[in-house]
Nucleic acid binder design. Structure first.
Lengths: 154, 154
DNA sequence: TGTAAATAATTAGCATACGAACTAAATGGA
DNA sequence: TCCATTTAGTTCGTATGCTAATTATTTACA
């Protein structure tokens, strides 16, 4: 199937060809990662893991910082944190500098859980990452960047 | 920021760099398209529009066919169809060939609604599509294809 | 200093994503 | 023909995405 045909085939997708294909690949990657987590009895969703891994790398953050890093909305982050707090994997502490904010950080249990999982997660990343050459990644980034810019231009 | 730094920056994202960036771009495209629909008082979500546009192009389909075209799960498609039937934009008719199936098609009202919206939707597609050269699109497709293959190899 | 505006987080409501379990209908082999 | 298996679609439960509205706190300016 050549390019013309592919474009015709997905012409019905609203955001267009690229939107549909990008969304589909994103969903598949996330699903594969979720299945990996399930296999290792992580007791976490993909999104919950990402928050934990972010905190493991950056230390305590407030919720808007988490939103910005992960490109998620405040309500979504609130809910993910609630679930992780319920599991006693992280804690909210009021920021003394600004009492509107919480400083969110891993509990000791959260750090342990992260440590147990990180090795296998890294293997997963490497496996799919290695499917792409550095050149592929450059290309992907530049094309995604162009799409993002065309959205920003509104 | 060079490639190394970008990779380091997003190292915490579970599925890896590409997963995060792909998902983020997909979400932004969809959100932009949804806002466009809202602006034109379409009375539809992006996903609902996509279903209607698919049926406008392909004629009557059963639900699994819709699932395959749109890469959505059966329960998700069931619910989207329920909402569109409530709005009297489409109808389910039992397939006489196989009474487990429904043939789903646009109602007259659905066809009218589609006709009212399609011009502006096409403009939206073109605007973001034009940000990419045919060469960019080829590259994007080939990189996404590699990622998909590496997922399929499980 | 006092108050309006801005900011951080939450809540509520609706829609989508996905796995699992379920119903009804069709199919295939003994 | 009968019954196990498969297939099409739905229902349920949990989690996420997004908008709008709300609360509590801080900032900015008159």
């Amino acid at each position: 199937m050549d390019l013309e045909e592919k474009i015709a085939e997905y012409q019905f997708t609203g955001e267009g060809l690229s939107g549909f294909l990008i969304e589909r690949t994103a969903k598949r990657l996330k699903r594969a990662f979720q299945q990996e987590l399930t296999k290792m009895n992580a007791g976490l969703t993909a999104d919950q893991w990402v928050v934990m891994d972010l905190l493991a790398n950056k230390g305590a953050l407030n919720q808007l910082e988490i939103c910005r890093y992960l490109a998620k909305d405040p309500p979504t982050v609130t809910r993910i944190l609630d679930l992780l707090v319920d599991k006693q994997l992280l804690q909210r502490k009021t920021d003394p500098e600004d009492r509107r904010r919480f400083l969110v950080s891993l509990t000791r249990g959260g750090m342990n859980r992260h440590f147990e999982l990180i090795t296998r997660v890294k293997e997963f990343r490497k496996k799919h990452f290695n499917a792409l050459s550095p050149y592929d990644i450059e290309l992907l980034l530049s094309v995604l960047e162009k799409i993002n810019q065309s959205i920003d231009e509104e």
